[in-house]
Nucleic acid binder design. Structure first.
Length: 321
DNA sequence: AATGTTTGACCGGAC
DNA sequence: TGTCCGGTCAAACAT
């Protein structure tokens, strides 16, 4: 992927990567040494990559049980012609640690695409068996699914989630607000947070309300925590004794102009939008930290620059237990 | 006193 | 080169 080709304003399609029902987490046991070209992770996926067309900029793979041996390891994958390289790395631990507090939801990722093509053509979630275990495989007919954003050169990649209010308040990390900006074309301000646990921690978080649906918060994470999550619940995000269903203190969601209808922020009233106009994940990918689950994110060094919008293909959503 | 929030100023990348 | 805009800084203020 070329940094200067990144277009955050590109309209994003959505597509899904899901686990099967009753999916059994495989132990991939891939090697994660920097610059490894082939490892057991590749060996499992490489056959499916033969049709990889290299049009993706960023995509994500969400495995029920994938892990890296070392925290900062990066996996580089390469297709059989050697013309494309995939760089895999894990997202910061906070993302999957947080997920354990959420109810089971389909795992969905948002996708950016460059040409007119249906979501099913981007990602074809398949099932294949390894021994008695079954888990999804991914064919690489996908074009440009996206869960990462980067607005500028040299800016850290951020991962954006669509969350409801109660999901925001489930954040296990402590954050200190350091800025707020009104964003162009959005009636709601964007709030900027840094990790307040450690001054050396570079983890950041942005929170804003979705201009598309004010019940939904767009929460972006960038950089990684370099420490364990705080254990004292009294110190957690909101600093409120009844934090669970309160907005984190300092989250300013007052719109510039009252153009949107009122919301009661009740998750029960929220239908998760199938129309995504920003590079976001529509639900938190669910992972089980207890089994070393992590989301793996890959980026590809090739450009695509078309822009188009598409609905999430709800048919491809598969609940995972 | 320590920690977090507010908010205008500033910086730098993109165009 | 100038302008726009997102991101960050930091002083003042609040808790």
């Amino acid at each position: 992927m070329q940094d200067d080709d990144w277009d955050i304003g590109a309209v994003v399609r959505s597509c899904n990567i899901n686990r099967s029902n009753n999916g059994v987490a495989p132990k991939l046991d891939f090697e994660t040494h920097l610059n490894d070209l082939l490892n057991s992770f590749d060996a499992l996926l490489a056959p499916s990559m033969t049709i990889f067309n290299g049009l993706s900029e960023v995509f994500s793979l969400d495995f029920p049980n994938a892990y890296q041996e070392k925290y900062d390891d990066q996996v580089m994958m390469i297709n059989q012609t050697g013309s494309q390289q995939l760089y895999l790395h894990q997202i910061q631990p906070s993302h999957f640690i947080e997920q354990i507090s959420f109810p089971p939801l389909p795992t969905t990722v948002a996708c950016q695409q460059s040409t007119t093509i249906t979501p099913k053509e981007w990602i074809d979630v398949q099932q294949f068996d390894v021994g008695a275990k079954s888990y999804p495989n991914f064919t690489f007919s996908m074009k440009t699914p996206l869960i990462q954003t980067r607005t500028r050169k040299n800016q850290s990649i951020s991962i954006t989630y669509e969350l409801l209010q109660e999901e925001i308040t489930n954040d296990i990390w402590t954050w200190r607000k350091y800025g707020q900006k009104h964003i162009k074309d959005s009636p709601f301000p964007r709030n900027y947070y840094k990790c307040s646990t450690s001054k050396l921690c570079k983890a950041k978080k942005k929170i804003e309300k979705s201009p598309m649906d004010e019940k939904i918060f767009l929460v972006s994470y960038s950089d990684e925590h370099n420490h364990d999550p705080p254990t004292n619940r009294n110190n957690l995000a909101s600093c409120n004794s009844n934090y669970k269903f309160k907005l984190q203190k300092g989250i300013n969601i007052v719109p510039k102009t009252p153009t949107l209808s009122e919301s009661n922020f009740s998750s029960k009233c929220v239908k998760r939008s199938s129309v995504i106009a920003s590079p976001i994940i529509t639900t938190m990918p669910q992972l089980d930290i207890g089994s070393k689950n992590k989301m793996i994110i890959a980026s590809v060094e090739e450009k695509c620059d078309g822009k188009e919008e598409v609905d999430i293909d709800e048919d491809t959503l598969i609940d995972f237990e």
